[in-house]
């Protein structure tokens, strides 16, 4: 006999959880403003240095929120479209491309890359990589299959990594240090303008993915089933992969290669909110943002005046916490 289980995800519970998630944002804002390598406490806005510290901390808060939201929403979409729990924002080679662009900008610099600046170089290379991956995967015409996309993503990533290693190995100590630090991730925005630019990329892309949520739900059954359910499956697949990659590219070019957020936060949100992307996309965005802000606050206040790279903290602190949630709620998160 089978035991009838209760409905696993109750909407009323989801609302409560969503409210909790939203309320965490102002709390984290307060925390971010209190913590920093210059000491604990709200900066004294009467002094010039205090104002500077406040603006630095505000900038980092918003950057963390944006980058975390972008990476996490992107990971959610990659996992749905590729139907693979190991998918993450960098699976199509975005990180390799962005890393190569950043390394070139830092090490070769000069007139070509120096002029456009590091984030732009990283972004452009990420997009170029993406185009190369699609180009390779679409050989033979038609929409590329999930497997050819993943495979060509891995190959192009590997090629980019080789170039980065070559560049780093021939660089001087200072250059090498800069590249490595960039790759570890740093959420300090270069300027208010760069923050605004990333907002202009990230917010519409997340919004568009939210609109695609019902289609993403059906696509988890596979592209052929989605076709039978009345979707233009190829179009939805391609547009959501492009949007997700755009999100990842923006986040990487602004904050470096921050790992873990885009892979694990979507799983945790799926455990908490169920697999419905109408809930999952916004929940992942908010959850990813909140998580990254929290990690960043820890990263810069744990060993003052030294900052730990935020990418180290995301996995170190987040890992155990998320393991607990996933162990308890795995049935809700992913079955295969």
């Amino acid at each position: 006999m089978e035991v009838c289980r209760p409905i696993p995800v109750v909407t009323a519970h989801k609302r409560v959880k969503a409210l909790g998630l939203l309320l965490s944002i102002p709390l984290l804002l307060a925390l971010s403003l209190l913590l920093g390598p210059s000491g604990i406490g709200f900066p004294d806005t009467a002094t010039v240095s205090g104002q500077a510290i406040l603006s630095l901390r505000l900038g980092r808060f918003f950057m963390g929120l944006l980058a975390g939201a972008a990476l996490s929403a992107s990971g959610t979409v990659f996992q749905a479209i590729l139907r693979n729990p190991l998918a993450e924002p960098y699976v199509l080679g975005v990180s390799g491309g962005a890393g190569l662009g950043a390394a070139l900008s830092i090490l070769v610099g000069g007139t070509l890359f120096g002029a456009v600046g590091l984030p732009v170089a990283a972004f452009l290379f990420a997009i170029l990589t993406l185009l190369a991956v699609y180009g390779i995967a679409s050989q033979g015409g038609g929409a590329p299959s999930v497997y050819s996309l993943i495979l060509s993503g891995v190959i192009v990533s590997a090629i980019c990594s080789s170039f980065i290693m070559f560049l780093v190995s021939t660089a001087d100590i200072a250059g090498m240090h800069t590249v490595v630090w960039w790759m570890l991730g740093n959420l300090q925005p270069a300027s208010a303008e760069s923050l605004l630019v990333s907002l202009l990329f990230i917010a519409p892309a997340i919004g568009a993915l939210w609109l695609l949520a019902p289609a993403l739900n059906v696509l988890t059954l596979g592209r052929e089933m989605a076709h039978y359910q009345g979707l233009d499956a190829g179009l939805v697949t391609m547009s959501s992969l492009l949007l997700a990659t755009l999100l990842a590219a923006t986040a990487v070019s602004m904050g470096g290669m921050i790992g873990f957020v885009g892979l694990v936060v979507p799983h945790v949100m799926r455990a908490l909110f169920g697999p419905d992307h109408r809930w999952l996309v916004p929940a992942s965005a908010i959850g990813g943002g909140a998580f990254l802000v929290l990690c960043d606050a820890i990263a810069r206040s744990l060993m003052p005046p030294v900052e730990i790279p935020v990418g180290v903290v995301t996995a170190l602190c987040g890992g155990p916490f998320f393991l607990v949630i996933l162990r308890r709620k795995m049935a809700n998160a992913w079955i295969s």
Binding site: P8, V9, A80, R83, T220, L221, P275, N332, W334, I335
Partner: peptide
């Protein structure tokens, strides 16, 4: 065979 990798009801 319909395969749903995610936990839909």
């Amino acid at each position: 065979k319909l395969e749903s990798p995610m936990a839909f009801t």
